[in-house]
Design a binder for these strands. Structure first.
Lengths: 186, 186
DNA sequence: GAACTATGAATGAATG
DNA sequence: CATTCATTCATAGTTC
């Protein structure tokens, strides 16, 4: 696939001859990645442990480990974290908006802290894991003894992106924004 | 759930056949550039021809020409090349890793050639291009963008040398002979 | 089986 | 150039 398809994605034709045999266990060959429960569990554990944006190395290793449970590619891991993070943030944002509204609405009534409500949906416990027993896979113990499970406990020293709210106010389209930034020096 | 694909899911009206030259100005009201298929095709052709990091002039010209197909700004071209290059690299990195991994994994099972594996990981026709594809001979079978490409290509060649043969896309073309034919127009 | 949901995949836009 | 964020497209699954 190239950029050529960037408009429509008519690739998998599994429907043509009766797409039998689909399903989780037996992965389809052309479709998109369908993670097994084990894979999801591991990924989720990693995420909950604080890993948000694994480096390429981490992705590699995670992918390799997860391949034990089924077919998987590095990009799947990459996308998984990308999506998971984004959607959590998204959910959070949405919630906070709701809270905000709710808060405002209730403001006439009583005062309650938005934080309370927030905790209901996304209670993110402490992260910063030093070590974590994640891959109980031994039957397939690899040869890379050196860097074992050390990879994921590194580098994501949470700095909790304080970016938070970059909501683009540009509701209405181009009124000729600054244009280029980077291009100006080119 | 969303308004765009109510019922049917064809990507938003990216010009495509209907859009013709008018550009997709009709649809997007937002801030994000939504390239038409023609625009993508041209950009892709340029990329495949070896252009990786267009200069400001090139960006300007490309942008100008592409504006025929729809609304576009220079920065869009700039970003497009940035992203495309980065992702090409990234993809290749991830994919090759996966190939290795898959290969190794399957090695315990059955012996399969790397080519086969490649086909599995990437729906793209197996061709781990190590060398730049300079002459996309078959990229012109599709009439639409190709014709036009030649059209605006002329613009470029008339930089200051009316020769129209020596313009090297330069920059990224390290140790690659002069790209005649296709690129000579640049 | 259409509508809806969850989520994999892609990509435009930035930032460092 | 790499990394990251936001938004959107596409589809496997589920529900009614």
């Amino acid at each position: 696939m190239d950029e050529n398809m960037s408009g429509f994605c008519i690739k998998s034709i599994r429907g043509g001859g009766g797409g039998g045999g689909g399903g989780n266990g037996g992965n389809n060959k052309c479709g998109r990645w369908n993670p097994t429960t084990e894979q999801v569990k591991v990924l989720t554990d990693l995420f909950r442990s604080g890993l948000r944006t694994p480096s390429t190395d981490q992705i590699q290793k995670i992918s390799t480990q997860l391949s034990f449970y089924g077919k998987i590619e590095s990009k799947n891991v990459f996308y998984w974290f990308q999506n998971h993070k984004a959607r959590e943030r998204q959910k959070r944002r949405k919630v906070s908006i709701d809270i905000d509204k709710e808060f405002i609405r209730r403001d006439h009534d009583k005062i309650s802290s938005p934080k309370e409500v927030l905790n209901q949906v996304s209670s993110e416990p402490a992260r910063v894991i030093e070590t974590l027993q994640l891959f109980p896979i031994n039957s397939f113990d690899d040869e890379s003894g050196a860097e074992k499970l050390r990879f994921y406990a590194n580098e994501f020293c949470c700095k909790e992106n304080t970016r938070g709210f970059t909501y683009t106010v540009g509701a209405e389209m181009d009124h000729h924004p600054p244009l280029d930034l980077r291009l100006s020096f080119l």
